[in-house]
Write a protein that binds this DNA or RNA. Structure first.
Lengths: 343, 343
DNA sequence: TTGTAGGCGTTATCAA
DNA sequence: TTGATAACGCCTACAA
């Protein structure tokens, strides 16, 4: 058998299991010599404590979880790094879990809280469509980061940190309009998206309306559910679909930078020059867009700030300090090479 | 208190805990009516079983872990997806864990095996520098994916699936030489990299030598440890450093596509046209390179095949079938717009 | 088909 | 400073 347990160590050292436990967990009520000897035996024997047993017994642990839906979304990389760092700075450990697209992150959270005795949860990239029912069961503090609920939907009992997606989307499309564009195509989420996809689309429509530009369905390309995601390949495919419609447009607004970059290539392959013949704009402020040729005009989300605020709000909840239900950060319109005046 | 346990459910249903357990775990030695009633109570009460308790008791679970070092490396996204899918197809669950750069993945594996009663481990993106000592403690089957040990280093007891990094790197540089380039700069890993970074660099030197081209240190840009990673920003910075040396070169070989893309932008900012004035080549075969302008010449790693083989080899080990210590896949040189004949 | 009881590996409480 | 012992929540013989 391979499983060496705390009992084996105790026997080997000629002490009781409680003493071994004390040595491992850095309690002070133990003789220095005893501790050293035990630690040495542990190191030599390659004993590894069983975390299941620990978690089962422990009443609480200094840990929070970060549940990420759509981990392959490049936009999340920076935010994840910031959040992890902030959590570690607070001497907590961060359990990073990827949530599958069809998986319920709240159910997962419920399991983890019990299993790991978590103090809090951060949801990244989730939707706001959870029944109050299951959210009420979440007894630990939680915050939603970068997700945003449409106004009108009920509060969920957790915090929320994001940009105002509709407003920022409006800002971008408004900018395109001011450049003189009036035929502005959009690459957007599937119609069933009730969260940020929808909000960004709403911003597009509002901006058009504010400039008196009629909304045209033929300029809208939606993701195909189950097939398209926020990545290059989908941006390329969606733009191909747009081009096949042979509908004229002088600007293309993609609701993510990855989509925008894929779109650029599709336009180039169709012999359309950027920005001379078509302006392209994205959303997120990814590094990739900065280094792309042409560099991409985008609506930058302040990822670092959002990450920091996310953790800070979570810990305010954990420490039962005064909190804010919702925090909205300003985005930042970054104009680069991919957009220009309508010619 | 909030913690509802199996006992509460038992009490509520007027049965014993074992009956509840049977109902939950789909045992057949239970009355259909009883089961339905219990399940209904469970659903209504929002009871969530404690996984720690389950894992503690369970002798083994149908689960394997995937430990990824450098999860932000875009190259891993595809492979992770394939591996997860293949594992699920085998009706196993896959525990995906990100390993921090300074964290020891074998120690983590040791913990997880005990905690979750895992059947096997896949290491993605790790190095081959683990003491035999700790690897021997890993009593479950394991394979290393996309990592490659330099010939001469001792076997580690696990399987290994990758391309031949030195050979493929040679292939790329050989290709550049055949285009007539002789001043070929390289963006490569930090000097202390003993794994794929080193192998790709070795391939570069060998290829130069085979063409009778002298190796010049001034054409080599290494990552700064702790600062540079395989991403756009580092590619940009490293190329800036190269340009500051004012050393002539007509081709730039970056040992990853992300580095290459960052490099392209740095060249462009310096007024250098690609590929007319400088050819650029990458490594990995990322989607990003396909959609970049100019599209990127690269050495594609067959990610899907590698992912499938990884899982297949792991399960052959789990099922104690005949196995292969090492599997090497052929890379694929993809010539695109970023490289051209030396002019 | 159901209930009882023991134990999985730890930590915590208490007494020594 | 240490040791015995009772949980932690669940599963599983075994008995009924």
């Amino acid at each position: 058998m391979d499983a060496v347990t705390i009992k084996d160590i105790a026997k080997e050292c000629g002490v009781s299991v409680s003493t071994v436990s004390r040595a491992m967990n850095g309690h002070r009520d133990i003789n220095q010599k005893t501790r050293e000897k035990i630690l040495e035996v542990i190191a030599r024997s390659g004993y590894v404590p069983n975390n299941s047993a620990r978690n089962l017994k422990r009443l609480e642990s200094r840990a929070v979880a970060l549940l990420v839906k759509g981990m392959d979304n490049m936009f999340f990389q920076d935010i994840i790094d910031v959040i992890e760092k902030e959590i570690h700075d607070r001497k907590y450990s961060c359990i990073l879990q990827r949530v599958e697209e069809n998986e319920d992150e709240v159910d997962l959270a419920l399991e983890l809280v019990k299993e790991k005795k978590l103090q809090g949860i951060i949801f990244l990239g989730g939707k706001f469509d959870h029944p109050q029912e299951s959210l009420r069961r979440l007894t630990v503090p939680f915050v939603m980061s970068t997700s945003q609920r449409r106004s009108g939907l009920p509060s969920c009992g957790g915090g929320s940190i994001s940009v105002d997606n509709e407003k920022e989307s409006f800002r971008m499309v408004d900018y395109l309009c001011r450049l003189g564009h009036s035929k502005i195509a959009i690459l957007t989420a599937a119609p069933d998206d009730e969260s940020i996809g929808r909000l960004r689309f709403d911003g597009y429509r509002t901006a058009l309306a504010s400039h008196g530009i009629p909304y045209e369905r033929e300029l809208v390309v939606c993701m195909e559910p189950g097939r398209d995601k926020y990545n290059f390949a989908s941006g390329y495919r969606m733009t191909r679909r747009l081009l096949e419609r042979r509908k004229e447009f002088s600007a293309l607004y993609a609701t993510s930078d990855t989509l925008a970059l894929g779109a650029c290539r599709a336009l180039k392959d169709a012999g359309i020059r950027i920005p001379e013949e078509c302006s392209v704009a994205g959303f997120d402020g990814l590094d990739a867009g900065k280094y792309y040729i042409p560099s991409l005009t985008t609506l930058e989300q302040p990822a670092k700030e959002i990450g920091r605020a996310t953790v800070s709000q979570l810990f305010r909840r954990i420490e039962k300090k005064e909190i804010r239900e919702e925090m909205i950060f300003e985005g930042n319109l970054i104009v680069r090479e991919s957009t220009s005046q309508y010619q």
